[in-house]
Amino acid sequence: NIFRILGDLSHLASIVILLRTVQKTRQVDGISLKTQLLYVLVFCTRYLDLLTFRWKSVYNTLMKMVFIGASVRVIQLIQECKTRNAVAYKDMMARDTFQIKYLVGPCAILALVFNYKFTVLELCWSFSLWLESVAILPQLFMLSRSGKAGTLTTHYIFALGLYRALYIPNWIWRYYTEGRLEKLSVFTGLLQTALYSDFFYIYYKKVIKGAGFELP
């Protein structure tokens, strides 16, 4: 359906925006390495089913591979910045102070409690859903502490938030047309969208109405 396609495309757009900008400008200003590392973990644990070869469709399989590849490439580019632009890299690391163990630990516990089957694949899948819902926190934490964000960061987070928001009408659509109600995805998806909603509000007020971007 249209919501799902648009959602996936804005997800892809967010990663492309990030990749292209970092590649072109060699700048990692305002980007949280921790959030990016969490996304690598999210994609690798979620798409483990690629290894079982029970692939859903060409689209589904290709997108999964692209997401894993692109998230790894982002890390590579950030690491390249370490040698090319050591000052900017150090500055980023100094501001990227969120403790990710407080996210990974609880997500692992939640995955053990909420899952469809007690198998490695299902536990990893559930873990990836919980982790994705909170993976943006180091990035938002960084933003709220610095109070300012470059256009790269704002556009990146906007595209990511849009992807999450579009998945909600997708689930409503699928509930009515296919009788599909997949509680884990829906719950973690709503949680994730809630984390973005404050950002959306500020984005609307500042970026769309033309003022600079600042978080309170």
Partner: peptide
């Protein structure tokens, strides 16, 4: 039922 759908989204 839920398991059947579990991995068909990204």
């Amino acid at each position: 039922q839920e398991e059947k759908f579990a991995h068909d989204e990204l």
